[in-house]
Amino acid sequence: MQYRTVPKNGDSLSALGFGAMRLPTKRGNIDEERASRLIRHAIDQGVNYIDTAFSYHGGESEKILGRILTNGYREKVKLATKLPPWNVQTREDMDKILSIQLKRLQTDHIDYYLLHSLNSGSWKKFQDLGVFEFLESAQQAGLIKNIGFSFHGDRKTFREIIDAYDWTFCQIQYNILDEENQAGKDGLLYAASKNIAVMVMEPLRGGMLAEKVPKEVRHIYEKSGSLRAAAAFGLSWVWNHPEVTVVLSGMNDETHLAENIATCDAATPGSLSDMDIQVIDDARDVYTKMMKVGCTGCSYCTPCPFGVNIPMCFYFYNQYHMLGDKLMTRGFYSMQLMGGMGSPGNASLCRQCGKCVSKCPQNIPIPEELKKVAKTMDGLTTKLVFMIAKRMFGSSIKNE
Rank of each mutant, 00 (worst) to 15 (best):
D325H: 04
Y320F: 15
E216L: 09
T302E: 15
M328V: 11
A283G: 10
M328D: 11
C313L: 07
G206F: 02
Y315F: 15
Y221G: 05
C295S: 11
D281Q: 13
L209M: 12
M335C: 06
M251E: 07
R284H: 13
V286R: 05
S334Y: 02
E243R: 04
A267N: 12
V238G: 09
V293A: 06
P303I: 04
T302Q: 15
G250T: 12
V238L: 09
D282V: 09
M291P: 00
K223P: 04
D282H: 10
P311I: 05
W237K: 05
D253I: 09
C295E: 07
Y300M: 11
A230M: 11
A232D: 14
R205K: 15
S236W: 00
Q319C: 07
Y300I: 06
L227A: 14
V213Q: 00
W237H: 05
G207W: 01
V286I: 15
Y317S: 00
G206L: 08
D285E: 15
I310N: 01
C295D: 09
D325Q: 07
K212T: 04
A229H: 08
Q336A: 09
F332L: 13
E222R: 13
A230P: 03
L204P: 00
G307D: 02
R218S: 12
E216A: 14
M312V: 04
G324I: 00
S271Q: 13
C264I: 10
L235D: 05
F233K: 02
H241E: 13
D325G: 03
K326R: 14
Y300N: 12
Y315I: 00
L209C: 07
M208F: 01
T255D: 14
V238Y: 01
R205T: 04
E254I: 10
E216H: 07
F316I: 02
K292P: 00
S226A: 11
L337E: 05
G294E: 13
Y300K: 12
G331M: 07
H241N: 13
M208H: 01
G206T: 10
E243T: 06
T263Y: 03
S299L: 07
W237N: 06
V247Q: 02
L327E: 14
H241L: 12
V247R: 00
M312K: 06
P311N: 07
V217Y: 04
A229D: 09
V247K: 02
R218T: 12
E216N: 08
A267M: 13
V213S: 03
R330V: 07
G331C: 11
N318V: 02
